[in-house]
């Protein structure tokens, strides 16, 4: 059903890892320059969409990583734990601060929170692609395993 495009398939092979790297870069530098969890997550979401269009939904549906429950769940959990850590260590829910890494590098603690945001946004895109994509071509895919199984 999906028209097969050699250019798209070959191009995505090179593009997808690169885009993923860019998304991580955007996530990491977000606190100081353009970027952050939302933008990084959306970029990674674009990778998922690219994979879908180039390799078809079987690739997405069959993947163990690309499921919305673990992604959204982990993301929310990380954000929540970050908030609770602030409550414990600094006396206020979601209190930020700076952390000095062993190498002497100073990092904003809120990066942890941004990682949570990143995962939730990726999870959102994955959820939409998996399920709306499935709805759009239900005859193409033999019944995939359920998300909650």
């Amino acid at each position: 059903m999906m028209p097969d495009s050699l250019i798209l398939r070959t191009g995505s092979r090179a593009l997808a890892p690169l885009m993923l790297l860019v998304s991580l870069y955007l996530l990491l530098r977000g606190h100081d320059a353009v970027g952050g969890g939302f933008i990084g997550g959306l970029t990674a979401g674009a990778v998922v969409v690219l994979l879908y269009f180039s390799r078809g939904s079987k690739r997405i549906v069959g993947s163990r990583v690309l499921r919305f429950t673990p992604l959204v769940g982990t993301g929310l959990l990380i954000a929540l734990l970050y908030g609770l850590a602030g409550l414990l260590l600094d006396g206020a829910f979601l209190a930020g601060g700076k952390v000095t890494l062993p190498g002497g590098l100073e990092v904003a603690a809120s990066l942890v929170f941004d990682v949570g945001v990143y995962l939730v946004v990726v999870g959102l895109v994955v959820g939409i692609v998996r399920h709306m994509g499935y709805a759009a071509e239900s005859q193409e895919v033999t019944l995939p395993e359920r998300e909650d199984a």
Binding site: G96, V117, V121
Partner: peptide, 26 residues
């Protein structure tokens, strides 16, 4: 300690709003 004001608002000053928003996304 962050130079990107948009991001500091999202993850520091108004982090609770952001937490709410990502919950809504979920």
């Amino acid at each position: 300690g962050g130079g990107n004001i948009v991001n500091t608002i999202l993850v520091d000053f108004r982090a609770l709003d952001t937490l709410g928003e990502i919950t809504v996304l979920g």
